[in-house]
Design a protein around this nucleic acid. Sequence first.
DNA 1: ATCAACAAGATTGTTGACAAGATGTTTCGC
DNA 2: GCGAAACATCTTGTCAACAATCTTGTTGAT
Lengths: 220, 220
Amino acid sequence: MTDKLTGAAGRQHVADSIRHALRSGDLVPGQRLVENDLAAAYGATRGAVREALQDLAAEEILEIVPRRGARVRTVSVEEAVQITECRSALEQLCAGKAATLATDDQRAELARIGVDMRQAVADGAWEAYSALNQRLHELVIEASGQEVARRTLGRLNGPMVRYQFRLALRPGRPARSLPQHLAIIEAVVGRDPEAAGRAAAAHLDDVIEQLRSSAAPSPT
Amino acid sequence: MTDKLTGAAGRQHVADSIRHALRSGDLVPGQRLVENDLAAAYGATRGAVREALQDLAAEEILEIVPRRGARVRTVSVEEAVQITECRSALEQLCAGKAATLATDDQRAELARIGVDMRQAVADGAWEAYSALNQRLHELVIEASGQEVARRTLGRLNGPMVRYQFRLALRPGRPARSLPQHLAIIEAVVGRDPEAAGRAAAAHLDDVIEQLRSSAAPSPT
DNA sequence: ATCAACAAGATTGTTGACAAGATGTTTCGC
DNA sequence: GCGAAACATCTTGTCAACAATCTTGTTGAT
């Protein structure tokens, strides 16, 4: 076995491991995280675990209450809606800028993603569609050159993993979001900032609607 | 002398003290922060100082490089522009929601702020105008009920203190921003979400223009 | 059976000392 | 005098033990 991870390395490792555990459902909201257990599980020192927990709390993924440890934060539907409203505002900005600033390579990749998305929906390849979806959003943000927005959106997405999961596997969801995604691509590739912003906003407004109609946040 | 501050209390105190020192110019960008000095200066333990530095680094106010300590981060004009673009997107959202959701009390306070602002500009009372400006933005965000946007905007403002300072005392700036502020107030009080969003965006677009025309970020 | 008080164990918070690395200074060869 | 190596000093990072607090389980009285 390798030595115990310490400092920056351990900190990063533990934080990533917890994020991953969250995504894969190994950790559920409300669950308590004990420093010693995490240290043993991930082969890090308690100090490293402590710093990692602070980082995750700053991202609002965890909630740490003094003397009582860290818990996985639960995100209400209302908060998920607010997060998505903010994402909408920022992605609208990015889409508009991307329409003006994207390089030819980026426009080409966007077009390719559009083609692949159509195919994925036709084939019922849900995981592939989800990956393309994520890449699309990333690419639009990257093409906008808005580094601050990129970081901010990254922060906002942290606590949302749970909902992304729930929404993605709603029946008929891909068929519904496909035209919205294609509209974003078309506007950005076609150098129409106004339309790009509108398309991005329309897409996320639809996500908000879906969130609102999803009754309870968690059946567990 | 009281005892050394430790844990959450010291952490908060040190972070606030550093923020204040930044605003008042006691700390300049690029300046190195030594943990022991801070601990002595603010009467806290080194542990508390350490945690405070982590917090400020998470807010992107400081930059901490391993084994070499923490420095005050310098914000380029380009980054300041990007931050303001993000603020624009989010405040647009908040202004629109505030126009619909503000309580009568909040609308009354907004109207009062408008009156006071006119007066302050007429009197040349710059500090008063600056305080009203800040209160106006706070109030719009509060009235929108968008807690996530509120936190996010707070984060974005962190690294901007320096530029707010530089912009506020440009000659003729208040006279220029006054009508923009009044337009926001009028739209929110008059329950016109569209106009409120447009007014907020227009105001911040003007701030961006001012930022761009402000040549070098720092004469030091 | 219910509840309060208490004790035992578990968990987080804090401290002080030391290790590791960076920075600045002196000294030495040329 | 100039540059480079050796040295001294300062600063941050790490750790292990201890202290403070919370949680859980038990007991005993009503």
